[in-house]
């Protein structure tokens, strides 16, 4: 394992109406990895991220970020929710949505100034969306909306990024653009954790992987643990993948 532990999850259990969605999860994510969380539908992948971020309250267990409680490290953590989690008809522009990423460092009441606007514009440029800055968000394509969400996370200048299915419903060009940005983040020493669906691309995109299906099946470097055995344990069927490593 490399250096420090970025995220440590201990005995985490989450239940909706007494039905466990995550059961006794222990997980250590080292700093500086680009990690995929994979598992079938209903495996609790999104729930795991939301529980780590405190959006969902677990019934047991604890989470620490760089050895401390999440609340004292909020500013180091950025979150990209699923695109479908918000109302894109909301009356606002692309730039304004990206600016929301700066609200965390501003805290209550203080208004964003030109400094925040400047960093929002830079983030828009990074994701190739600068020319759309004044576009109303409902007039963006699915891939463009995803990039706006990514820009909003970038503007937080965090150390750890959580992303919930950033590749869902985006075209091939956007997928490449997004993965390139994620790889750049890793190069800059950031930790990136992505809920991911497409098993084919795991070895190509990620260096670390966690198999999840209500319980944690395995976690570690893609090279060592991304194999038929773990896939079968996670997906329940005899999984014979012809994935080139």
């Amino acid at each position: 394992m490399k250096g420090k532990i970025a995220v440590k999850v201990d005995d985490l259990t989450v239940a909706y109406n007494y039905k466990p969605v995550l059961w006794d999860i222990d997980l250590q994510i080292p700093e500086g990895v680009l990690m995929a969380i994979v598992g079938p539908n209903g495996a609790g992948k999104s729930t795991l991220i939301k529980a780590i971020l405190g959006i969902i309250k677990p019934i047991a267990g604890s989470v620490s970020i760089f050895g401390k409680a999440y609340t004292s490290h909020r500013k180091h953590v950025a979150y990209v929710p699923q695109k479908g989690s918000v109302d894109w008809d909301f009356p606002t522009t692309a730039l304004d949505v990206v600016m929301m990423g700066t609200y965390g460092s501003l805290g209550w009441i203080r208004r964003p100034s030109t400094k925040e606007k400047k960093s929002a514009l830079e983030a828009l440029e990074k994701v190739g969306m600068l020319s759309f800055k004044n576009r109303q968000i409902s007039q963006l394509s699915g891939g463009q909306q995803q990039r706006i969400f990514l820009a909003r996370a970038l503007v937080q200048d965090a150390s750890i990024y959580f992303m919930d299915e950033p590749f869902q419903g985006v075209d091939a060009t956007t997928e490449v653009a997004i993965i390139n940005i994620l790889k750049e983040l890793r190069k800059a020493g950031k930790t990136v954790i992505v809920v991911h669906h497409d098993l084919q691309t795991v070895p190509e995109y990620f260096d670390w992987v966690t198999f999840l299906n209500v319980k944690k099946i395995a976690t570690g470097p893609v090279k060592e643990i991304f194999n038929d055995d773990n896939l079968t344990k996670t997906y329940g069927i005899n999984y014979k993948v012809s994935i080139q490593k």
Binding site: Y79, T92, G104, L106, R152
Partner: peptide
Amino acid sequence: KELKMSTFDAGLATSLGF
């Protein structure tokens, strides 16, 4: 700003500490 953000994306508002 808080009203706008939590109306548009409550999840983000929570994760940012609002």
